[in-house]
Amino acid sequence: MIRTLCGPARAVVSIAALLAIGCAACTSAIPGAATTTTTAAPSGIVAVDDRMQRSEEWLADFTQPNRPGCSAAAAVDGEVAWADAAGLADLDAAAPLTTATRFDLFGVSDQFVATAILLLAADGKLALNDPLSAHVPDLPPWADRVTVEHLLHHTSGVPEIWSRIQAAGFLAAHPATQADAMVLIRGVHELNFEPGTFFEGNGSNYLLLAEVVQSASGQSLPDFFRDRLFAPVQLDIDSSAQAAGDIAVNYAEVLGELQPDRSNGLLVNGPGLQYGTPTDLVRWAENYRTGSVGGPALLAAVEHGAVPIGPNPGGPSYGAGIFVRVDGSLEHGGWAPGEFSYFSVSPDRHTTVAIVCNHAGQGQGERMIQGLRQIWFGIP
């Protein structure tokens, strides 16, 4: 039986906490779905125009002038139905956020890494039951027991990397690179638990999967993403450290003051270096309905083997880079001191919402998520 863990204390966690898989440590700081029950959708069909107005009012409730802010979008059947942004992208330049402003998409990018793994499995370049050691060299002996599938579903037992990055002295001003993170992982001598026995969401799993993608494909992760994921669906997500243009500065609150934060910006895995907009995210979500990337087999693989994330049978689970709620919707969130992100696909796969903020201190994550889902899905 797979149990649910979070962090070194191995405590059972809530669904809300598990939306923060991309966070520095798995915590309940960024809530997601506060409940696993669903409510009936309102009778009748809400006009898109009405939903647009309600969404604009919703966004205004969570942003303040002259502060970092948020950008959000919704799409129906792949067509963007609403997009808006409020707040500042850069405090020093007083540059406003726009719907074209790109953000480091952080934790919601795990789905891209997972999709890459599933594509490579379909190509015959790897198998989900391959040991990690078959693709990433010079790891401790535990890599023989950890499989690609364990990493994919956060059941590997590999300890959280973010606390080790912080303990090693890496700061926002001097962020860890992918190579730095791998040195720290190679210094891990023991797993938190036997692989396959617990669910423990943490960033180490997908950082290691990024290494697997590069090893199995022979390409850098940015190149693989561009060629196999983004180009086929005409997305302009930039996966390089040289991303330029209208990019939001992330801000963390330090001793009561907002300071620029780029603590995760040099890692090449899902939680880092994926620059895009909420509009990109909701357009990508059309793939969960159409299978444009990977076809029906990939769509089936996303939920195949999903593991429970809580103690109750029949509750929410974690598939390939994304949570599967009991109402059938898909979602993922991410949190860092300087960023909050969230992405969700409706149970019928026709409607998608996404939001990214360049400051995690709004403190109203649960209300933000529930508001968007209520407006566009008719469910909390």
Rank of each mutant, 00 (worst) to 15 (best):
G315E: 10
G321A: 10
V307S: 13
H332T: 02
P308A: 08
S329C: 00
Y318G: 06
G321K: 13
S346A: 15
G338K: 05
S329K: 01
G314M: 13
G315K: 08
G333H: 03
F343T: 14
A320P: 09
S344K: 02
F340L: 12
D327H: 00
G328H: 09
G314E: 12
S346C: 10
P337K: 04
G321W: 11
F323W: 05
P347C: 04
S317V: 00
F343H: 15
V324F: 00
G334R: 12
S344A: 15
D348T: 07
H332M: 11
G319A: 06
V307T: 14
F323Y: 05
E331G: 09
I309M: 12
G314P: 13
P308T: 11
S317T: 10
I309E: 04
G319R: 01
G321Y: 10
S341K: 12
S341C: 15
A336T: 15
P316K: 01
G338V: 14
V326Q: 08
G334D: 05
N312D: 12
G328E: 06
G310C: 09
Y318T: 05
S341N: 15
S329N: 02
G321F: 10
P308R: 07
E339K: 06
D348A: 09
R325C: 00
P347K: 09
D327P: 00
F340K: 06
G314V: 11
Y342H: 12
I309Q: 07
E339Y: 11
G334H: 09
G319I: 02
P347H: 09
G315S: 09
G319N: 04
S346T: 10
P337H: 03
I322E: 03
V307F: 11
F340I: 12
A320I: 03
A336N: 13
A336S: 13
P311C: 08
P311A: 15
F343N: 14
A336Y: 07
Y342A: 11
Y342V: 09
V307D: 14
P308M: 09
G328V: 04
I322T: 11
P313S: 13
S346F: 12
A336I: 11
G319Q: 05
V307L: 13
I322V: 15
S344R: 02
G315P: 07
G321L: 10
F343L: 15
S341H: 10
G310I: 05
F340W: 08
P308C: 07
R349T: 04
N312A: 14
N312R: 06
P337V: 03
V324W: 01
E331C: 12
F340A: 10
A320N: 09
R325E: 00
P313C: 14
P313L: 15
F343M: 15
L330S: 03
P313I: 15
A320S: 14
